[in-house]
Structure formats: structure tokens, C-alpha cells
């Protein structure tokens, strides 16, 4: 039991300043969350250009993306954007791929017992699983608008995010021998899951993407938009070599959804 409560000691000097900073952070967060939908409507990629008007490196990459992708959706930048974008993009994809939907539904149903055997408390897990399945069942109804509205209702959307976080954590723990090599700092895989995967609002890294895409066997292509020399936003596929059904755009600290041409 020594692993999830290292703890203690505040920094004695400057506590009041800390409070101010925290308050300021909260206000900024609230401003962001009020102004950006959890999942936005489709928009042209050229809408990104206004954000980088004096930035030739990014503008070149946007032009290249525009050739490969017809549009994008923005996700709220709240630290859950990878999970939320992934879920929405994949569920939308499944609406048009009935066979895969059936497989996924089976897999999702089975995941509950797998996670319980992984050590998650049954009654907390059940809540998330049940709500997750409600949203999964919407895919079968085939109404894109309804799925979109549901993803913008915090009560449903956040349950989906939590459940995917738990699936990710389960996968990391199941294959801890492999994943432990990718964890920075002096932490075990379990500690990493408690600190960086299971809590809401913690940002996702490669390791989260690899674990989730492997757990669900869903190919994800991430286009990285950064300051690198290349004239295109480099693509990385997870897990490597698998057919891609979810396309995401990464800009430092944030993921959005892409739709290929």
C-alpha cells in the first residue's frame, strides 16, 4: 500500500501566491471549457491557418494536410482530448462498418470482467461500463447527430473518457513487462497508471496511445504538427502496421480529429 501516497509537505513560503496561481488556473480552465465544445463541428483545415499567420513552418504543414484531409473536428483542450477524440472518431467510423461494430461491442462487453480481474473495484467500474455501453449502443442506431450530441453532454462524454482510461490502464498493467521500459522516472507501471492514466485531465503520450490502440485493436494514425524541418506533418501509426481507422492531428499538448480525403 505504499505506492499511491508518497506525499507530504507544502512549500512553506508563498502559499498565498500558490492559491492565486491555482485560482487563476481554474479561471483559465473554465474559460476554455465554456468556449470550446467537448467535440466540435466539422470545419475546414484552412481554419487552422489563422492561428499561425506568421509561421511559415506550420503554414506549409497545414497546406500539406489540406491535400490529404478534407476536414477536422476540434476537441476541448482539457487533458482528455486524446481519449475523447479517439472515442468519437472511432464510434463514427463504426457507424459505417457494421461487422467491426459487432466485434467491438462484444469486446467492450467482455472488458468489464477483464478490468475487474485486473483489480478495479466492481461497483465503481460498473457505473462507467454501463454508461459506456449506452453510448456504444447508440452506434447501432446509426444517427450521427445523436452521437455528436451525446459526446457533448459531459455526463456521458466523461464516462466514456474514464472507461477508456481504465482500459488503457488495464492494458499497461497486463503487459507491464513490455511497457515498463517506456516509463520515465523511478515509477512502476502501476504507479504510472495511478498518476498519469486513471486520473481525468492528465494528458496522453505515446504510451497511452499504444496501449489503448493495442487493447482495442484499433489502428490510429497521428499526424504530428511541430517545428520539425519536414514540409509535412509526419504520420505515426499505432499499433505499427495495422489498418488505420482513426486519424488524429497532434499539436504540442493537444489532439483533434482529422477526416481523410
Amino acid at each position: 500500500m505504499d505506492n499511491n501516497h508518497e506525499t507530504t509537505a507544502t512549500k512553506p513560503e508563498g502559499l498565498e501566491q500558490d492559491e492565486l496561481i491555482i485560482q487563476q488556473h481554474r479561471e483559465i480552465e473554465k474559460e476554455i471549457s465554456d468556449s470550446i465544445l467537448l467535440i466540435g463541428q466539422k470545419e475546414e483545415l484552412t481554419s487552422l491557418e489563422t492561428e499561425y499567420i506568421n509561421d511559415p513552418v506550420y503554414l506549409t504543414k497545414i497546406q500539406d494536410l489540406n491535400k490529404k484531409y478534407k476536414c477536422m473536428r476540434r476537441a476541448r483542450p482539457d487533458g482528455n482530448c486524446f481519449f475523447r477524440s479517439f472515442a468519437f472518431a472511432y464510434f463514427e467510423y463504426l457507424m459505417d462498418h457494421n461487422e467491426e461494430y459487432k466485434h467491438f461491442k462484444e469486446r467492450a462487453l467482455k472488458s468489464k470482467d477483464e478490468l475487474i480481474s485486473c483489480g478495479f473495484t466492481q461497483f465503481t467500474l460498473e457505473d462507467f461500463h454501463d454508461t459506456f455501453m449506452e453510448v456504444v449502443n447508440l452506434i447501432g442506431e446509426g444517427q450521427h447527430e445523436k452521437l455528436y450530441d451525446t459526446f457533448n453532454m459531459q455526463g456521458y462524454s466523461d464516462y466514456v473518457v474514464v472507461y477508456l482510461r481504465l482500459i488503457t490502464s488495464g492494458q499497461l498493467q497486463k503487459d507491464a513487462e513490455f511497457y515498463k521500459h517506456f516509463i520515465e522516472g523511478d515509477r512502476t507501471v502501476v504507479e504510472f497508471c495511478h498518476q498519469e492514466v486513471e486520473p481525468m485531465f492528465k494528458e496522453s503520450d505515446h504510451i497511452h496511445i499504444i496501449a489503448l490502440s493495442t487493447a482495442l485493436n484499433v489502428g490510429v494514425r497521428v499526424r504530428y504538427m511541430d517545428r520539425g524541418e519536414s514540409s509535412e506533418a509526419i504520420a505515426h501509426d499505432f499499433p505499427e502496421g495495422s489498418p488505420v481507422c482513426v486519424h488524429l492531428l497532434y499539436r504540442p499538448g493537444h489532439y483533434d480529429i482529422l477526416y481523410s480525403r
Partner: peptide, 22 residues
């Protein structure tokens, strides 16, 4: 109480029970 699961490391999958045990 200074305990990380009460702030930074809280997860919705935790519970009153798990806080008590910690």
C-alpha cells in the same frame, strides 16, 4: 491531510473505500 489521491492523483475509479484504506 496531505495525500496525493485527494488532489492530483484522484481518479473516478477510486472510492471512499480506497481513500479510507490509504
Amino acid at each position: 491531510i496531505c495525500l496525493s489521491i485527494l488532489t492530483d492523483d484522484w481518479s473516478p475509479a477510486l472510492s471512499v473505500q480506497s481513500v479510507c484504506l490509504s
